[in-house]
């Protein structure tokens, strides 16, 4: 087994992790919005349509739904 370096030991110390909220580059996370793409439209609509189908089936099948 390879020798564990001091840096690796530090990383595996409980509680440390290698990241904390204080070490963030917030701009990086919040800025730079990409153009809206057709894949996103497809993903969002697909999800809503799946929800409507699941709702319809659910209301019919689930015995405690308002339809029963």
């Amino acid at each position: 087994m390879a020798e564990v370096t001091t840096e690796e030991k530090k990383e595996t110390q409980p509680g440390t992790g290698s990241l904390s909220v204080d070490a963030l580059e917030a701009e990086d996370v919040l800025a730079g919005a990409e153009e809206w793409s057709s894949t996103e439209t497809w993903l969002v609509l697909g999800s809503f349509i799946a929800a409507i189908i699941a709702l319809f089936i659910g209301l019919l099948v689930v015995p405690t739904s308002v339809l029963h």
Binding site: A31, L43, S47, F48, A51, A54, P63, T64
Partner: peptide
């Protein structure tokens, strides 16, 4: 049974809804 149905429906509405709010209104990255 009711919990399963409600959860799947809710999540499939929640996620795209918040995604659109974040992207379109608050202009956040993907």
């Amino acid at each position: 049974v009711a919990g399963a149905a409600a959860t799947v429906v809710a999540y499939l509405i929640f996620w795209p809804g918040v995604y659109v709010i974040s992207r379109k209104i608050f202009k956040l990255p993907r």
